[in-house]
Design a binder for these strands. Sequence first.
DNA 1: CTGAATCCTATGCGATACTG
DNA 2: CAGTATCGCATAGGATTCAG
Lengths: 132, 132
Amino acid sequence: MDARVALGAKFENWLALGFDDARCPVRNLLDQIGDRWSMLVLAALAGGAKRFSTLARALPDISKRMLTQTLRRLEADGLVHRDVQPTVPPSVTYSLTSLGESFAAPLLGLVEWAEANFAAVLEARARRAQAA
Amino acid sequence: MDARVALGAKFENWLALGFDDARCPVRNLLDQIGDRWSMLVLAALAGGAKRFSTLARALPDISKRMLTQTLRRLEADGLVHRDVQPTVPPSVTYSLTSLGESFAAPLLGLVEWAEANFAAVLEARARRAQAA
DNA sequence: CTGAATCCTATGCGATACTG
DNA sequence: CAGTATCGCATAGGATTCAG
């Protein structure tokens, strides 16, 4: 696999650079979006702009608290744009920035891998459960 | 962006299917490898098989506890192979399975995005900090 | 050298109630 | 509608110690 080699080379590189936490983009990325919701919110917004309550319905089991928190962080990182209409009642619309849109490609890659290999993972777990 | 549209479509699909936690590959994937270490361990192994202590040195700030735990889970999911040499002292080597190698491609995509857009993210954060 | 076991703390995250 | 505030639990994960 070519990607494997490239990835291995990159890792050796980080290692040589001392793996500085603040300067390692990967560590930084994982710290931000490696949580339970960020990627799902981004996927939800990939289809187009959505209002707060629409997002809440789209992510069935997220709490308002976490939805707010997640959106705020994505906004701070420049991935999501927040548009407030000062009407009564207020209407707030979230959408991907161009930076957020650029993240759709790698995220899609991850999603496709997950879909393609989910069966294999389940099988591996089953084998292990059986062995025990 | 084409990937954005594809991602949006996929999301609508999950939504229509009820978003069942146990059957959604993406939720499942994120629950497993969406932690702090899994992706880094996979990246470390992308360069080739490594021993336990080598991995520990390669990931400067992982504790033995988390390294063991992470490796065990990746092994259970069929991404990593564990090879024990019954010598004294014992020598245990970890390597990617073919399934694990297949994950290198999407992971590399993520890493490349992180490297390419890290500056933009930092800039967004800086703008926000300045505004406050 | 490669873990397993135990202890402890930080915090992710949900539930609920309240506000403009 | 779109949040904020407060509470409380479950878990992630580090530090340390023990074992084969």
